[in-house]
Nucleic acid binder design. Structure first.
Lengths: 254, 254
DNA sequence: CCATCTTTGTGCACGCGTTCACAAAGACAT
DNA sequence: ATGTCTTTGTGAACGCGTGCACAAAGATGG
């Protein structure tokens, strides 16, 4: 997973648990694949395997949407695709803007997974005047000055921030002021937004750090098993080790 | 959050809850910023605000690492940076390979957040022969044929997959066979890996779909509040119907 | 129409994560 | 030393999410 999320006041949206909502896109993808192969029905067991989850969990997830299955048979693929799409709001068109057209922004603009699911890149915005007019993924980049007008004219409610960390909050503020109520943030910053605005965060380096943690753990366990234990899995005498300034990796800008 | 995660056998690594591990990079980032401003100490309240979490949660998180704070004062910034870095395994060098140098792969290669945290891009690998030798982010792209040798020679244990969906599983298999035990997957596919291998998934379109769900809900609520409901929350009923929408509590994440 | 077989939908229990609330610990002033 | 003030560290309660296990529902065949 990436990261994402902000505080979740624990209020279950319309009775559908947040955890379930997060899995619906997963099911949808698996179902779409089945649909393309013209598979008419699928059992919870099969679909769960395809989506990489437990079948009981899948059935419970679907139960929040309603009883769309047929006992003894399974689920109708087409029907389920429709129901989940509707539930996720993918039956309508969602214009999105991407702000910050660097390497990542360009990659996002070119990403095919958006258009295929009801998301339409309405505009690309960058602060660099030199970028203005230059087409990326077939869409001309526009200057930040026109941000508000672009949002309003296109009725954009979802914004993607792919700017450097420093520019993220100001851009976020402007997006929100212009009417955006959902933000996908790729900048390594904690954005503060007013109530009613959703923010999800994707942080590439955080994912790697989590992997590193587990990787280190594996390595530690291994050597501990050898008894030699070059890196004690748990050693922790803050008095002995320590080294407030010792090495410490580099680190980052905000 | 983004996505990420795969099976978590509920085995708490070394007593540190998975949820806590996922937040450590967040704290680290906030602490680093403080460190650069030469702030000597910070209270749980201040740091929590900077990281965007609850202060009680932060204190509990830190309590899993040990008692690194001073009551009445707070936490020593430098010391905490060191401790968290060490805990996450960032005090050592982690060579990573990125497979699939398309738009996204290139963006990742150029991403500064890696190098600064102990991650070193050891190699870029792509299946397109035309890419071979071409430098991306200053690193020459190598051909997939040499994947195994690259992994072995560099002692790589973390791999990043940024290939098209179809190529992901084969690439994953080869990475694992060559010795990689942690994978960050950007391809929209469920990877199957043997036990002992960690997989985290980042899926851009899933994040947007989750936002769309909440966005739709907001829109539905709004029109429902007007009672007139010019735009029914969901409408559409195929044959049967469904649609006990209407009210819905309220409250949203931020 | 009845028996059997398959698969859903869910009641229930359990465990993790979050949050509250407060005692304990230390800093600091007198 | 003693008292006051601040902030940590954590016991305990609570709620959400997960997974088991099974009854109910429907398909299918005789």
């Amino acid at each position: 997973m990436a990261t994402g999320r902000t505080h979740r006041p624990a209020t279950r949206s319309r009775g559908i648990p947040e955890a379930t909502v997060a899995r619906l896109p997963l099911y949808l993808r698996a179902l779409t694949a089945l649909s393309e192969r013209s598979v008419p029905t699928v059992s919870s067991e099969e679909l769960a395997a395809a989506a990489g989850v437990n079948s009981a969990k899948l059935r419970k997830d679907f139960s929040y949407l309603g009883s769309y299955g047929t006992r003894g048979v399974g689920y109708d693929v087409e029907y389920l695709v429709y129901q989940i799409s509707r539930e996720l709001g993918l039956t309508q068109d969602w214009p999105v803007v991407i702000v910050g057209i660097g390497n990542l922004g360009a990659a996002l603009a070119n990403y095919g997974g958006f258009a295929s699911r009801g998301f339409r890149v309405a505009a690309l915005i960058d602060a660099d005047p030199a970028m203005a007019g230059k087409p990326v993924a077939g869409i001309p980049v526009q200057h930040t000055d026109d941000l508000e007008k672009i949002i309003t004219d296109n009725g954009v409610s979802i914004g993607v921030i792919a700017t450097p960390a420093g520019a993220a909050q100001p851009v976020c503020d402007r997006l929100v002021a212009a009417g955006v109520t959902s933000i996908l943030n790729f900048a390594p910053t904690v954005l503060s937004v007013p109530d009613g605005v959703d923010v999800r965060k994707v942080d590439l380096s955080i994912e790697l750090q989590i992997l590193a943690f587990h990787e280190q753990r594996k390595a530690g366990e291994e050597s501990a098993a050898h008894e030699g234990a070059a890196v004690p899995p748990v050693a922790h005498d803050e008095t002995t080790d320590q080294g407030p300034d010792g090495d410490v990796p580099a680190v980052m800008p905000a």
